[in-house]
Simulated assay, not measured.
Amino acid sequence: MTAQNKKAEDDYYCVSLPPSEWRHIDRWLGDNVSLTSVVLTELNKIQKTYEKGKRSAVRIGIASIDTMIGGLHPGELLYVGSAEERYNFAVGLNIIHAAGMEGNKKVLVFNAGRGQYSYARSLISLCTGIEESSLQNAQSLTGEELEQVETVFAALQLSNISIISTPNISVEEICNKMKALRVQDYPDFILIDNLSFLTMQEPCTNRSEELQKITEKLWSIAKDSRIPIVLTGSLSKRRMEMEGYRPTAADLPEERMLKFLDKIVTVHGNGKCKDRLYITVIKNPDGTYGYRKIKYDPASNRLIELLIQGQNKSSYKSN
């Protein structure tokens, strides 16, 4: 066996378990019993083999993200984080448009932070390219623009997009609604916008503990239902002004969230180029990391893919 193959095997059998849980098992099996490690490593192998055989990737519709993370697999929790909430909102809207309308995916959206009419206007603005202010003051629309709005409205009616708008919805309510779904009604994936506005019915000592428990519950319900979840949320702003700034896992709102997030993608802007965003993958078990630039229209929240040298849509592969 080569050194490279040996390392791959070691990684495959690697078990990450807190010391407290090891001690709990050893208390029953005895400190010197090797069965502890044997059982746990074998369980780890079985779980990974099972997952590899069952997983098929779902595209969320943003090519830069899909290409890097390999799509979303059943039960995965993807965190899309940004220090600026408007970028998270833009990503969410583009996922709904690309996957739900153009890709005809069944998408369930939990809108926790915005009014339902504001969310609808933003989606129409993205699809038509008409600024939201013009949609609010409909008298300023031209006949052609009004026709565009009506066309988008008809397309939305035919789509498989469901949006539940409940400001400051609790994570327990989200989990209960997911559990109430019949298997035949399962969406291709769920989008939750935004972690910053989610709450918990269960008492917590502080917001940090609440964020950890919210993430853990979403991770758990994703695994139980095997429905992939996209969760948008905030990142720390403390390093934003640094030259060459690029977010890392240390910028998560709560460090203990990290172990419950299967994949993490960050979005940040460039002060010099207002129409460019950077999409960065900072956690991905499927192995691809790095960043891509994407064009951003602040007026309509539309994201436009820039040409990726040597890559096109056919480069995307699902397992």
Rank of each mutant, 00 (worst) to 15 (best):
S162W: 04
I279H: 02
R114S: 05
L126H: 03
W28Y: 15
W22T: 04
S118C: 01
K295H: 15
S64Y: 07
T205V: 14
I227R: 03
S196N: 11
T67E: 15
L191T: 03
E76N: 08
A3D: 09
V107M: 06
I163Q: 04
A57G: 13
E147T: 14
E216C: 12
P253A: 04
W219Q: 09
S220K: 15
E173A: 14
K217L: 13
V152M: 05
G269S: 12
M257F: 07
I214Q: 01
E145C: 05
Q148K: 15
L258G: 02
N270F: 14
S82R: 06
Q47Y: 13
V80M: 09
R23G: 00
L78W: 05
E172M: 13
P298R: 09
E84S: 13
S140N: 06
F89W: 15
Y12F: 15
C127T: 04
T280M: 04
T199Q: 11
S162Q: 10
K263V: 13
T280E: 08
E132L: 05
L93V: 11
L211R: 05
L307F: 11
F89C: 04
N5T: 07
W22M: 03
V149I: 15
A8L: 14
G75H: 02
L141K: 03
S82W: 08
S165K: 08
L126G: 03
Q47K: 14
A155Q: 14
S125V: 09
L211K: 03
S118Q: 13
R55P: 00
S220M: 13
K259I: 11
C127E: 06
I164E: 06
T199H: 05
I174G: 01
I169F: 06
T205A: 11
A8N: 07
I264N: 01
T280K: 10
D185A: 14
G30E: 08
L218N: 02
S134V: 00
F110Q: 01
Y291S: 14
R238N: 12
Y79L: 01
Y119T: 11
R302F: 09
K48D: 00
A249H: 04
G70V: 03
N270H: 12
Y119L: 07
G61S: 06
D286F: 14
R182E: 06
V267Q: 00
